[in-house]
């Protein structure tokens, strides 16, 4: 168990290092000097560019630049925003709670919908109930979030006038974005829960429990559920990451002021330090989430630690 955890931790560190290399190279792959990217478009003079290159250490050899970048990250220096003229990290952190709020709502909605549906479908293989659940899931995976979001706005905000269409705020503002992100996530979780249930029910120990004469309902809830949910918790971790990507679109649709919207604004205002930091931070977050999920799974099912 301990050696498994150490191994996973090392893997996570390797991944974080690799992501750092990618985000470092990405800005240097851009046409022109990285200093040019950090300055407002077309108005910078040659002296300003050179001064910034000097300040950013761009005249030093590449490995040394990377070292400066890497050590900067440890000190919490993720770069300077050209738009806000401030370090990017505090700005990103200040936007974080709004995105986290949506993410929590989304995961809650998805789990509440998907787990019962998926388990039910898996327990009723080949019946109409399964077909209905699968069509619900396929439909959810086929809706692009921007279209679903705009449809919901049209229905609930424009047509019925029940909910506000745009903006950041309390519960009434959260409902539509959460529905928009929650339905596709519920769709993929339903599929995972269903196949988890199907796989678990075909295992020998379930047959053995049946042979003991235990009621079907109890077999499902008491014995099969726990193992069927392992792929679900893995999937929740994975989709949390996808959500960060999805948040970019959904926050743009609903003008929700979270980090997704911040990425959009940074792209539009060519604030590359912000984009770079965002890439890095979202990857770090996902690596941590995946690590925690693996940790939880290894407690649910210790067999997973046996390579």
């Amino acid at each position: 168990m301990v050696s498994y955890l150490i191994k996973r931790l090392l893997q996570a560190i390797v991944v974080m290092f690799a992501v750092t290399v990618i985000s470092f190279t990405l800005v240097r792959m851009a046409p022109g000097s990285p200093a040019l990217l950090m300055l407002p478009l077309d108005v910078a003079t040659q002296e300003q560019i050179e001064a910034l290159e000097e300040k950013m250490g761009l005249n030093k050899p590449i490995p040394e630049q990377f070292w400066i970048y890497l050590t900067g990250l440890f000190k919490g220096d993720f770069g300077m925003s050209t738009v806000y003229q401030q370090p990017v990290l505090p700005i990103i952190i200040s936007r974080m709670p709004n995105t986290v709020r949506l993410a929590i709502g989304t995961v809650l909605l998805a789990v509440i919908l998907a787990v019962p549906l998926g388990i039910f479908a898996g327990a009723h293989r080949g019946k109409v109930a399964e077909l209905v659940c699968m069509v619900f899931a396929l439909l959810g995976q086929s809706m692009s979030s921007m279209w679903l979001g705009i449809l919901l706005i049209y229905l609930f905000a424009v047509h019925l006038g029940w909910l506000p269409a745009l903006g950041t705020g309390g519960i009434e503002y959260m409902i539509l974005p959460v529905l928009t992100m929650g339905y596709p996530m519920a769709a993929s979780l339903t599929r995972v829960a269903r196949s988890g249930m199907v796989d678990t029910l075909s295992e020998d120990y379930i047959t053995a429990i049946y042979a003991k004469g235990i009621r079907k309902f109890e077999v499902y809830t008491k014995y099969a559920l726990r193992n069927a949910l392992i792929p679900v918790s893995t999937m929740i971790g994975l989709t949390l990451g996808l959500n960060l990507g999805g948040a970019v679109v959904v926050e743009a649709v609903f003008s929700w002021s979270g980090i997704g919207q911040l990425i959009n604004q940074s792209v539009n205002s060519r604030d590359y330090a912000m984009v770079q930091a965002m890439l890095l931070i979202s990857a770090f977050l996902i690596t941590i989430i995946t690590f925690v999920v693996d940790l939880i799974n290894s407690f649910i099912d210790p067999r997973l630690t046996l390579n």
């Binding site: 974080m16 690799a18 990451g241 996808l242 984009v275 770079q276 890439l279 990857a283 996902i286 690596t287």
Partner: peptide, 13 residues
């Protein structure tokens, strides 16, 4: 590493 970067965020960057 690729899995840890959300596809859409990488694509946007």
């Amino acid at each position: 590493t690729m899995l840890s970067i959300p596809g859409l965020v990488l694509a946007i960057a």
